[in-house]
Nucleic acid binder design. Structure first.
Lengths: 337, 337
DNA sequence: TTGTATGCGTTATCAC
DNA sequence: GTGATAACGCATACAA
C-alpha cells in the first residue's frame, strides 16, 4: 500500500511552502499563474489527490448529506433517494444513505453516526417504531440541520415534505364516483393512524360530498400490506351479499393483490369492480393498466427535501431559517378507461 | 451553531491530559477504572461526540465502504445495496452510495470522490457506458480494494460477483420445454453483448440439447427494455404465420409488457403462449402469477460482494489476497402451472 | 504573491 | 497509569 502524496510532498519537490501549494490547488486568486500551473502540473504527475477527511476537519464540514430511510429496498424510498442525490450532486454534495429497517434503535445509532461524521445536514423519514424524537433534537442542538420527509413528526420545528394524502385519496375516490361507482369499498390500514387516517378521511370526504353511503362491511382494515391479505379481502368482499362495485386500495401492493383475486373469481375489472391504488410513479409501469393508480411523486419529494436541506446548510445567517412544510400534491398517473 | 465538545474540553475540566481522555474513551485496559468512569460520565454530561473525520485522518481509514451502482432506483440495485448494507452494518462499517446514472464521466468522478474520502473499499457495478477501466486501476494503485459485482470487467484483477446468466437462461428454457413448449421465441437485447449474449447462449443451448429449432423471426432484439417495446414485439410475433407457443423474455419489464399484450390480443397465458422473464426476487411479487420468473438473488449478491470487500479490507498481510470470482446461481421463484 | 505559524480533533509514541 | 508532544493532511491569519 503506497503512501498517498500530500501537498507537503509537492511543496518539497517544488521548493515552495505548503501554503502556496494549498492555494494553487484550490485556485486561489492570490497566486501567480506560473506557480499555479507548476503546482497543478506536478500534482498530476505525482498523482496527488486531496484528502477530504483533512479538508473536512479544517472546514468543519464534509460536503456530505446524510439520508435515513426505513428501507432502500422499495420503489418509493429508492425513488426519493434518487431525487435527493439528483439535487445534491449538482451542488457538489455527496449523499450518505442508511436504512433504519423500521428499527428505532438502529435509527438512533445511524443519526448519531451521521452527526459524528460531521455530515452537513440530515434528511430523514422515520421508522414505524419511532415515537420518541430526542435523537433529532440532539442533532439539532449540535447545529446540524434536519429536514423530514414523508414520515414526519409534527412536533419537531423543522422543515418537512409530505404527501397530501387527504387530497390524493379524495381525488381518487372522486375519480371512481365520476365513473359511476356507488358502492365503494375501502381496503387499508388502521383508520386511526397518520397517513392511514388521512387517506381514509379523504375517501370519506369525497363520498360525503357525493352523498354516498359506505357500508360498514365494505371497510376492511389490514395492518400488513401484502398480496395475500388483499386477496383475502376481495374474497371476503365478494362473498358479501351486497357486493361493492369499486375498491379503494390503500397501497399498490394491495391493489395488485386485489387484481389477482378478481382474476381468480372471474370478476371483470373495472366493469364489475374497479380497483384503484395509491402507488408511486414507478410501480405504475409494473401493474395492470386496468388499475387506476395514484402517484406519490417520490422522486420529486426527494428533490424538494434536498433543496430544503441545502438551503439550510448554506444559510449564511446564524438566524434560524423559517421552517417550511411542503405538502406535495398527488397525481393520477394511470386511469382505467 | 454551538462549538462541539472535544476531548480537549473534557481534559481541561478534569485536569488531566487529552491522552488520558482519549484512552478512557476508547480501549482502556491500561487505565484506572476511576478515571475511566469519571471521563465517561463527564463526556455524557457535556454531550461529547467523537469527530469521525479526525479519527479517520489519523487512522488512515474511515470505516466506510463506497458503493457505485448505475441507479438506485431499480429493484435489482436497491436489493443489492440492501444486501451490502446488511453485511457492512454488522461489521460497523457505513455505506456510502452513489449512482452513476449509466454515465461514464459521472462514474469516474464518483470513484475519485470515494477514494479522496478515504473509503476503505469500493464496490462497483459499472455503467453501460464504461469500457475504459483506468479509473479502477488508479484506485487499486492507491491501495484501495475494489470488488466488482453484476456489471463486471473480466480484465480487472479483482474479486467479482456475477450472476450465472447462461445457466439461468438455460434452466428457464428447459422449464418451458419440459412444459411441452416447442416454438419458443426470444425477446431480448443485442445478442452480441455481455449478459445479453450469455442469456441468449443459455437459451440456445437448452434448445439444441432438446433438438428444437428456433425460427429466426421468433428472435426479436430490442435494446430498450420497455413495456411498450414488449407489447410491440408480441403483436409482431402473433401476426407471424407461425405463432410461437412460448416467449423467453430477457427482463421482467418485457415479460410484464408481453403479458399485457396477450390480454389485448386475447391470448391465453400460459396455455396458448407461455411467458417467462428474468426478474429479480422482488419483482415476482408484483407480477402476474401466470408468469414464470427467474430470480437473480440481488440481495444475496450484495451480501457476497460486501463480504469479499470486508475480507480484503481486513486482510492483515500486505500480500495480495487471491481474487475470487463468485458465480451466483439463479433460481426459479415462481412457476406457472 | 509567498512564507510562517498555528490549529482542526484525534491518536501514537514516547517518556515519566 | 498518566502526561507531553508529535503527527495526520490541509487551510488560513498574519507577516513579509
Amino acid at each position: 500500500m503506497k503512501k498517498p502524496i500530500t501537498i507537503k510532498d509537492i511543496a518539497k519537490s517544488l521548493n515552495i511552502s505548503v501554503a502556496t501549494v494549498s492555494r494553487a490547488l484550490r485556485d486561489s486568486n492570490e497566486i501567480s499563474k506560473e506557480t499555479k500551473r507548476a503546482v497543478l502540473q506536478l500534482a498530476k504527475e505525482m498523482d496527488y489527490h486531496p484528502n477530504l477527511l483533512a479538508r473536512g476537519l479544517i472546514n468543519r464540514k464534509s460536503k456530505i448529506i446524510g439520508v435515513v430511510v426505513p428501507t432502500i429496498n422499495r420503489q418509493f424510498w429508492a425513488n426519493s433517494i434518487s431525487g435527493i442525490e439528483n439535487i445534491a450532486y449538482n451542488d457538489d454534495y455527496k449523499v450518505m444513505i442508511f436504512q433504519s429497517a423500521e428499527s428505532f434503535r438502529k435509527e438512533v445509532e445511524i443519526v448519531e453516526t451521521l452527526a459524528n461524521s460531521r455530515v452537513d445536514g440530515i434528511l430523514i423519514a422515520f421508522s414505524k417504531e419511532t415515537l420518541d424524537f430526542e435523537h433529532i433534537n440532539q442533532v439539532l442542538n449540535r447545529g446540524i440541520p434536519v429536514v423530514l420527509f414523508e414520515r414526519v413528526c409534527d412536533l419537531l420545528e423543522v422543515s418537512k415534505v409530505v404527501t397530501d394524502d387527504f387530497l390524493g385519496a379524495k381525488k381518487m375516490t372522486e375519480h371512481l364516483i365520476s365513473r359511476g361507482k356507488k358502492k365503494i369499498a375501502y381496503l387499508g390500514g388502521p383508520l386511526t393512524l397518520g397517513v392511514c387516517r388521512d387517506r381514509y378521511l379523504g375517501f370519506e370526504s369525497a363520498l360525503k360530498e357525493a352523498e354516498i353511503q359506505v357500508s360498514p362491511d365494505h371497510i376492511i382494515e389490514t395492518d400488513e400490506f401484502t398480496f395475500e391479505n388483499a386477496k383475502k379481502a376481495i374474497h371476503q368482499l365478494w362473498s358479501n351479499p351486497s357486493k361493492p362495485d369499486a375498491v379503494f386500495c390503500f397501497a399498490d401492493v394491495l391493489a395488485i393483490g386485489a387484481l389477482d383475486a378478481c382474476k381468480e373469481l372471474g370478476i371483470k375489472v373495472p366493469q364489475q369492480l374497479a380497483i384503484t391504488g395509491f402507488g408511486n410513479d414507478d410501480t405504475g409501469r409494473f401493474i395492470n393498466p386496468t388499475l387506476t393508480t395514484m402517484a406519490q411523486p417520490s422522486f420529486e419529494m426527494g428533490q424538494l427535501a434536498a433543496k430544503l436541506i441545502l438551503k439550510e446548510i448554506n444559510a449564511t445567517t446564524e438566524l434560524p431559517l423559517p421552517k417550511l412544510e411542503i405538502i406535495q400534491p398527488t397525481l393520477i398517473v394511470r386511469e382505467s378507461t
